[in-house]
Design a protein around this nucleic acid. Sequence first.
DNA 1: GTGAAAGCGCTAACAA
DNA 2: TTGTTAGCGCTTTCAC
Lengths: 334, 334
Amino acid sequence: MAGIKDVAQAAGVSIATVSRALSGRGSVSAAAQEAVQRAAAELGYVVSSSASGLASGRTRNIGVLVPVINHWFYACVLEGISSRLMDEGYDTTLYQLTKDRTHREKIFSDFLLRQRVDAVIAVNVELAEDEVQALLAVDKPLVGVGGPLPGVPTLHVNDEAISALATGHLVSLGHERIGFIGGNEETDVDFLVPTHRRTGYERALAEAGFEVDESLIVSADFTLPQGYAVAKQLLGNPASRPTGIFAASDEMAIGAILAARDLGLQLPQDLSVVGVDNHDLAELFGLTTVEQRPHEQGQLAVAMLLRAIRGEEPAQAHELEHRLVVRSSTTRPA
Amino acid sequence: MAGIKDVAQAAGVSIATVSRALSGRGSVSAAAQEAVQRAAAELGYVVSSSASGLASGRTRNIGVLVPVINHWFYACVLEGISSRLMDEGYDTTLYQLTKDRTHREKIFSDFLLRQRVDAVIAVNVELAEDEVQALLAVDKPLVGVGGPLPGVPTLHVNDEAISALATGHLVSLGHERIGFIGGNEETDVDFLVPTHRRTGYERALAEAGFEVDESLIVSADFTLPQGYAVAKQLLGNPASRPTGIFAASDEMAIGAILAARDLGLQLPQDLSVVGVDNHDLAELFGLTTVEQRPHEQGQLAVAMLLRAIRGEEPAQAHELEHRLVVRSSTTRPA
DNA sequence: GTGAAAGCGCTAACAA
DNA sequence: TTGTTAGCGCTTTCAC
């Protein structure tokens, strides 16, 4: 396995020049540059990340914290992050953060805190104050996706505005009894997403002059099956049935659509449904939804992080756009 | 940031003893062990992975190669891998391998080959002969999931047997016109999975004495929407419609169920559907399927890899179990 | 069981 | 622009 010395020898320069030529730090003559490049290629030389990391303090490795992987949103964000990071020559190291404190502590102390990563992207994980401090204390740039994290630059959509938009869409169509399928905060790995989405829903209702009817509010875990289950409860009683439902995720919204079908309801005549995400399945179900682009969120997070790593302008919180995608799952009430 | 020297000083021993005590390599007296552990904990000391890696040649970091992340199977495998790896004190570094040769080459040369990872798990990526050789040449253990990879220990289900089982289930119910929704090989990231699943389907038909009817065979990309689309074509013509469908993935099977419903067919009376996976959504749709447990596959792959890393018995190909999960999507034909 | 010391393969001052 | 050289913080012989 060729080392930097071999390359230096083959190129007829010193190892320092090889290092400079290959890393782009410091100036190197065109001739030397060329010679080094050629020699490195011929020998199949690649710097040892351990050696480089030890000497420079940079690992070119970014830690990504996610609560789960097997979930549309996280998988998309992760794809966005990893592809962008790879383009920039960085590795992506994955940490699944559970709710278990000791497990988390281990991740923080054993993995993140020392030399393993140059920086961290936290995707929808609610970091405790001391966890944030620990990261910042070792001078590791930290960017959050789905924040907000106190004192941390974060990329996020405006969950409240999204909900208000979705609910408002139903209101504008003439719906007066609008159900809400939210997330349940206990089991939830996400932040305040459940809370914010509910607040937006209530705000839109208030603006329309409607009262909040607790019997129209149910919660699930953002998945399709649970959305189906709670929607069935919500729709089961013909007397109290809402004419429209806003679900805090597309998966739950699709669950609601399936539940409505199984109850013999015609959509959208008997029931309008709006979701959030613009999930891969949304189009198939004709689901009206508020789009958020997790893949892009991941890419943007990387861009923010790189700026922080390079010590450029202090990146700050950035609110991402969202837009209503109207399809066939919503119409005026019968 | 405390270093090994600080710990040595605090514990009143040499840095060599600290290293031994913390890594478990070499013998240390109980007293020293205790003193070191205490000092390290007090100082919040964690070894520098760069320094340790440089000195020892071990990074405690495993590279995981996947074609995509945002897909049920891969996300599950990934969760299994990363959680198990974390338990063992290893990092998981993620590499998305595209079909683009130059991109792949970059991953291999710049990332994998040098000091960044101790070993590699390839999940359903078809590695070229030279890619496998490159890994083995630098003496990096390699384990495949979903193989087979020539000369590489691999964990895999028997795709052909799975298909034969699923198709046989329909045959045993009395179906004679059985459609097949397979994967399309061109766009496919997976191996020979599409081919094997088709072979199993054909074998089961042959065993039952049926001829293969090409008009009953369609292909999609393993996703629900495409499964829906091709199933609609398959089921559109009432004259040539099959009474049962075997889909090579649960997502496509569910797509077929939805397509059938949209065509006004009653399930399972008018159409039986079998899938493969036992996907999170299978139960909701009452889908009969052949289960494979990707999460476990990931965990087992880690176990195999660790054995290889430790130089224990040469791990070999391991075929995973599968089982038929019968639900309500299949019955005898009308 | 323990310590001294020689690297591991680079990067970054510094000097030229 | 280039080379020399001193570390980076560990692990691992080797001698005791």
